[in-house]
Design a protein around this nucleic acid. Structure first.
Length: 697
DNA sequence: AGTTTCGGATTCTAAAGAAG
DNA sequence: TTCTTTAGAATCCGAAACTA
């Protein structure tokens, strides 16, 4: 932790703030502050470092030093970055770094430079060196006419050998595996690169799949009940892997890749090879996909494959690719009319049920991921929920259906509000209170469900509450009059965190960690929000806030060793919590849990919101005293700081984004109006209740 | 005339790489 | 280990735009 970061919650000391240097070179010896206040930084005016500073005092706006400074200096390996940039320039300029380019050949990504001119310019096919690009293989795309044909012997399988597929997941058009022999395909002689016609790549040995499938049905099936165990646990499926349809083979590869990365460090994995097997499976899936047309004969297999590729990349936090494959799965679902209730009439009841499950899994996943990445959603709760099969454990589907119901509360208004694009007038207190209420009521019948599902539903519920609360802060609703159950009180995130601690402490490691990166992200979101509340109430010694610090401590410890390693979300969280709690990255043990946490059942806590402890009215204590302790700052000041954090995009966890070749933590877009649109005067007057009066218009 | 906004020059700082 | 180079972040000058 650098010295700058350490200062991020406090104004610079008089000595450090004045320790500037002269700038401008005009001999005026104007001092440059080490740190300007948030408003001066935003306004690009000179700050004097006081509290409040001169410009803020003059403009009657609140002066604060909340925004943490970013890390300065170059990121990542410098030479690698420069080399990559040079290669990119080189590739863009030539399209082939080894050969001079003729204007005829250089026609762009969608140009007709493939098979039609094969006889005259065969060199363009790049058969020996791959496509003329520096992209890794899985990112290379072929124009439709350029897709390499499958090897001759593989193409022959589909027509001559009946696929091992059951009717359930066979491609709708019965064409998978031999689509390149259809009329629209270009002549083989024109499109087949010579090197590919020599020998087909070996498929992964069939005996590699079944052990992973057993892990899937042991740990992941409760949260993804979309595969028929009778089929996928049948060794006959893997007996002749070379004869399997490409569609099914791709699904198996993507599925294994996802299983490995999601359960890695949670359960012992088979085949501890030197090279990570998840990567092998994922690469194999993508390789196979290049050998046949997986788009046109749309099938649920393709849809599932895209979904599991999403799971694979999502767990690796390759966020761009993850979102791409999730959207690909959504597109497949839409092409299959899975979002249309009428379309289910034509299927037999069992097939229809499997499709409903897949649709709702995509729905839940898209909503969750869209909330985390602030994306639009394309799927809606437009079809009936699946029903429990006669032969199945009813609890299993009950959990799945409840999760779907919970995410149905996350409607388009919620998504828009969270993305910060919903009209402020529509994001009012009544709407938010209703949303919070629905989150508590939805998915409340949790009888007979598995522990894994219980953890998922209840942590997700608290996580959505936290997001809703942040929307409220961004929209100024924390200033509204107290209303029982609105969940917009200052200390509400502490209650939510307490419930999450109860849930996680009362569940097994496997039940918690089998959700993969998703659970990690939700816990860190909750901890991030909690840290901000505690930061903005620093000095409050009331029981609620002490308990909040202990909950934060526990959540940080969870994240320090989740899934066998330290979560990447821990470091940005530690930045937020600097000085708040006595926990450091070296694993200092947390203090014992406070009494109130143990007075309630530790396992499977109540699903309906508990009565708000203490019933604090944040507008009431004008003297600034908490429930049974002391506050060093007024409630209005705390609320003001929170709102300031929210408007600068620093409320909650920062946003993990790609910048060049690197990841970096960026402030989120506020869940209200963008900062730029706000009149700075709305930040309120500097003294006391000025914040409380700062209602958005 | 006073105030606010913001492009961009200047400076600071951390990280990478080179030199000893 | 120390020094040098460099990328990226931060500050805030001053011109332009805006407002009363």
């Amino acid at each position: 932790m650098d010295a700058e970061s350490l200062q991020h919650s406090a104004p610079p000391s008089p000595t450090s703030s004045q320790a500037g240097i002269s700038r401008g070179g005009n001999g005026t010896s104007a001092k440059v502050l080490r740190r300007a206040c948030d408003c001066c930084r935003k306004r690009k005016v000179k700050c004097d470092g006081a509290e409040p500073c001169g410009p803020c005092k003059k403009a009657t706006i609140r002066c604060a030093y909340l925004q943490p400074p970013k890390k300065k200096g170059p990121k990542g390996l410098r030479s690698a970055r420069v080399l990559h940039a040079l290669r990119t320039i080189d590739d863009t300029a030539s399209g082939d770094s080894t050969a001079p380019v003729s204007p005829r050949e250089h026609q762009g990504a969608f140009g007709n430079w493939g098979w039609s001119s094969a006889t005259s310019t065969p060199v363009v096919m790049q058969t020996a060196y791959g496509p003329p690009t520096s992209l890794p293989p899985e990112q290379q795309t072929y124009p439709p006419a350029m897709q390499p044909a499958p090897p001759a012997d593989m193409r022959s399988y589909a027509p001559t050998h009946p696929p091992v597929l059951p009717p359930l997941y066979r491609s709708d058009t019965q064409q998978s595996g031999w689509s390149l022999q259809q009329d629209h395909s270009p002549p083989q002689s024109a499109m087949l690169p010579p090197i590919l016609s020599e020998r087909p790549p070996q498929r992964i040995s069939g005996d590699r799949f079944l052990p992973y499938m057993q892990l899937f049905f042991g740990h992941m099936f409760p949260i993804m009940p979309v595969l028929d165990r009778n089929l996928y646990l049948d060794p006959r499926l893997y007996a002749e892997i070379d004869r399997l349809d490409s569609d099914m083979y791709c699904l198996l590869c993507a599925l294994c890749a996802a299983i490995i990365v999601q359960l890695d460090a949670t359960v012992p994995l088979p085949f501890p090879d030197s090279k990570p097997m998840d990567e092998v499976f994922a690469e194999e899936c993508l390789r196979e996909r290049k050998s046949y047309d997986f788009i046109a004969p749309t099938s649920t297999l393709s849809c599932l494959t895209s979904f599991f590729l999403f799971a694979y990349y999502g767990n690796h936090e390759s966020l761009t690719k993850a979102w791409f494959y999730l959207q690909e799965a959504v597109t497949f679902a839409q092409n299959l009319n899975m979002d249309d209730e009428q379309a289910y009439d034509k299927f037999d009841p069992v097939e229809a049920q499997w499709r409903r499950r897949l649709y709702w899994l995509l729905f839940v996943t898209e909503r969750a991921y869209a909330m985390q990445r602030r994306k639009h959603t394309r799927l809606h709760p437009s079809i009936d929920l699946p029903v429990v099969f006669d032969s199945e454990d009813p609890g299993l589907l009950n959990g799945f259906v409840n999760l779907a119901k919970l995410f149905s509360v996350v409607d388009d208004n919620f998504v828009s509000a969270w993305r910060g694009i919903r009209r402020q007038s529509l994001c009012d207190e009544a709407w938010l209170a209703n949303t919070q209420r629905q989150l508590d009521v939805a998915a409340s019948a949790l009888e007979n469900i598995s522990e894994t599902q219980h953890v998922d539903i209840n942590v997700t519920r608290q996580w959505l509450h936290v997001l809703a609360w942040q929307i409220g802060v961004s929209n100024g609703l924390i200033w509204g009059k107290e209303e029982t159950g609105t969940g917009m009180r200052l200390e509400y995130p502490i209650e939510l965190a307490r419930r999450v601690v109860q849930i996680t402490e009362g569940s097994s490691k496997a039940a918690l960690e089998s959700h993969g990166i998703g659970m990690e992200q939700k816990l860190s979101d909750i901890a991030g929000c909690l840290a901000d509340v505690l930061r903005c109430t620093e000095g409050d010694t009331s029981a609620t806030f002490i308990e909040g610090r202990q909950c934060l401590n526990i959540l940080l410890q969870k994240l320090s060793s989740i899934r066998g390693k330290e979560s990447r979300y821990l470091k940005p969280l530690m930045t937020k919590t600097e000085g708040l709690i006595g926990y450091d990255l070296n694993g200092q043990p947390a203090p014992p849990m406070p009494a109130p946490l143990h007075t309630q059942p530790a396992r499977f806590p109540p699903t309906v919101a508990a009565p708000h402890g203490g019933g604090n009215n944040y507008l009431a204590p004008s003297n600034g005293n908490g429930r049974d302790g002391q506050r060093t700052m007024s409630m209005a000041d705390s609320v003001g700081m929170l709102r300031s954090l929210s408007m600068s995009g620093n409320l909650g966890m920062p946003f993990l984004a790609v910048s060049g070749e690197n990841w970096e933590w960026q402030p989120r877009r506020p869940s209200g109006r963008p900062y730029e649109e706000l009149d700075t005067r709305m930040l309120g007057a500097g003294s006391g209740h000025g914040w409380a009066m700062a209602q958005p218009v």
